[in-house]
Simulated scan of single mutants.
Amino acid sequence: MIRVLVPRERQPGETRVAATPETVKRLRGRGCAVWLERQAGLRSGYADEAYAEAGAELFQGEGPEAAERWAEADVVLAVQTPGAPGTEAEAGGSGLEALRPEALLLGLLNPHGDHSLIERLERQRLSAVALELLPRISRAQAMDVLSSQANIAGYKAVLLAAAALDRFFPMLMTAAGTVQPARVVVLGAGVAGLQAVATARRLGALVKVSDVRPAAREQVESLGARFIEPPRLEEAPGEVGGYAREAGAVFLEAQRQLLAPHLAEADVVITTAQVPGRPAPLLITREMLGLLRPGAVVVDLAVGQGGNCAGSRSDASVDVDGVTVIGAGNLPASLPQHASALYARNLAALLEALIQEGELRLDPEDPLLDPCLLSHAGVCRREDLRPARAGQEVAA
């Protein structure tokens, strides 16, 4: 029987959980024993009793019982790396250092930012799958954590903007006259951007969208938004493996020039442009912020990678000459019940794919695992993510 452990998340501000009663039942049906730390789902709206009814075995997060569970676990399902920098201290006998050799860790492991991760995995001889690196292939669609969480981020970004804006989103006909709809500009037509477009349109706003890929036009227009054509340059970045590539300086400057007149008309700007393992492209400079009217709102979803907007700060709202710049670092954690439900289903789908004939089998050559299996039984498979040896360079 495969023993699956689900800890309580200890990262500040992290309210999600890696399993729900629904996925506990699902894993139990595949022959897994599920051990869940008490109150792990409390901040996500899932009570211990619901987990127990689904078949999970609850344990205290500290003391001999916790030490025993961690030492015997075959798989740990987490949202973020247990014991990562900035995390609340793990209780004695818990955390990666308590796992047995060859145990498997699944989660959003921040492989580009946690410089101690590879060393910890090697020291404990652990296997680990970083869900950020999961390939965007047809087999992985049900496991695509980035997409499920980006959907939530795009939705919540619009609600934050609407709450901070000094006017209505929809057009209103009143006895005092007609109120014109808000004008929204979305930068990036990925999952988060398209959800932001759909949400803003549902609220009645007029929406324009900028993306480096001309092929995004069809999706944008299908949602009722207007597409802003990208610069017509030979060095257009495009995408690789379903993820955006980094744009060059010439392309970025041309894109900023095209955006300027649209920003001057905007009430809200939502930025979503990110490149895995690279600093987010600066799309709105300090000078360009001056084009926005006083009272306008910018929501920067890329603030965790440095931000698309000058002056944005993670999990903070900043006033820049009358423009409100909101750095939205971890919006999925602000809607933890649905975020956890989707995340847990993604994890369950991945774990089910790794279970064959009742046993956990990791094939490093499997196209599903090859890019995201950071270590296999303590052997590093992504030397490009080892800062000491690779100068913190990352794969394109």
Rank of each mutant, 00 (worst) to 15 (best):
R120Y: 00
V76N: 01
E97M: 13
G63H: 11
H112V: 10
V75W: 00
E53K: 12
P82D: 07
Q60C: 11
D74K: 02
G113C: 07
A54T: 05
L96H: 06
A91E: 11
G92H: 14
L109Y: 05
V76D: 01
G95S: 04
L117I: 05
A89N: 04
G63P: 11
S116E: 12
A78C: 14
S94K: 05
A52M: 07
A89V: 14
S94D: 01
R123V: 11
L104Y: 08
S116Q: 13
A89E: 15
E57C: 14
V75H: 00
L117E: 03
R100E: 11
D114L: 02
E65R: 15
L96F: 12
A91I: 07
H112E: 11
W70Y: 12
R100D: 02
G93S: 04
A67S: 10
L109S: 07
L108V: 15
E122I: 13
G86Q: 14
A67L: 10
L77F: 03
A67N: 06
D114A: 06
T87A: 15
V76L: 05
E72P: 05
L104P: 00
G61N: 12
L77W: 01
E53I: 07
E57R: 13
R123P: 02
A52Q: 13
V76K: 00
R120G: 00
S116H: 12
A78R: 03
G83H: 13
T81C: 14
